[in-house]
Simulated scan of single mutants.
Amino acid sequence: MAGTAVVTGASSGIGAATVRRLVKDGFDVVAVARRADRLLQVAEETGARVGCLDITDTEAVRRFAGELDTCDLLVNNAGGALGADSVATGSVDDWERMFSVNVLGTLRMTQALLPLLRDGAGGTVVTITSTAAFTAYEGGGGYSAAKAAERALSETLRLELCGEPVRVIEVAPGMVRTEEFALNRLRGDAGKAAAVYEGVDHPLTADDIAECVALAVGLPQHVNVDQLVVRPLAQAAQHRLHRGPLMNRKNEH
């Protein structure tokens, strides 16, 4: 599959890595994000087109969609977590922001581009959720709730598009180490952000997730990967994380 791809949250992390990977696969990629300077760097590096856009602005999203002639692939990647407080003490503003970007941003982009995705031999919607979408954890109530809602959106969309040539794919990563995710979540505290990954033997990278997107998208159009859950080998589940080197038991005596 190739054609025109739109990737949100494309100025860094998983979004930027996905832009690079899809350009490599021959897509005409429109990289979407708020930060024009970072976005231009990605565009200069990859040759992608730029869509400087805040996906929490409904009218701006509609104008953006109206400027496109075609769209064969939408990657809903923009999102993130804010805060690690309990439900009892969590900030309502943080919860609102997480829902506005993760859930409603995905809804706005999907609604705006769905006519173009339906108009052709076949379109694909990929949404990057999280393993937090189906396993809650202490301090992650807002993020888990937002990602669960995003997952429900994807599952519902797949049902509603049954019979049409549009694939709906969810990629749900576990621990991914990027330059900004934990730092943003923990209010810029570099020490706390580093501690999240401390001792973990090879957390996933943004490039790993981009490879998963490319794998799912690159399958024949009649093949739909409903949900692809991907974790580092050191993370067996949301609450089962090994810190320290991965050991070869064969060599133990």
Results as ranks from 00 to 15, higher is better:
95 W>Y: 15
98 M>Y: 05
100 S>L: 10
103 V>Q: 11
105 G>D: 06
105 G>T: 01
105 G>S: 09
108 R>H: 15
109 M>N: 09
109 M>L: 14
110 T>Q: 11
110 T>F: 13
111 Q>S: 14
112 A>S: 06
115 P>A: 13
117 L>H: 06
119 D>A: 14
119 D>Y: 02
119 D>N: 12
120 G>F: 07
120 G>V: 03
122 G>D: 07
122 G>E: 07
124 T>Q: 09
124 T>N: 11
125 V>F: 00
129 T>E: 11
132 A>H: 13
132 A>L: 10
132 A>V: 03
135 T>W: 06
135 T>C: 10
136 A>P: 12
136 A>S: 14
137 Y>K: 12
138 E>R: 12
139 G>D: 05
139 G>V: 07
140 G>R: 08
146 A>N: 02
146 A>R: 00
148 A>K: 03
157 L>G: 09
157 L>V: 08
159 L>M: 13
163 G>L: 09
165 P>D: 15
166 V>G: 05
167 R>P: 00
167 R>C: 12
169 I>Q: 01
171 V>G: 04
173 P>L: 11
173 P>D: 08
178 T>V: 10
179 E>M: 09
180 E>L: 13
180 E>K: 11
180 E>V: 11
181 F>C: 00
182 A>Q: 05
184 N>H: 12
184 N>G: 13
185 R>I: 02
185 R>L: 04
187 R>I: 03
189 D>P: 06
189 D>G: 11
195 A>S: 11
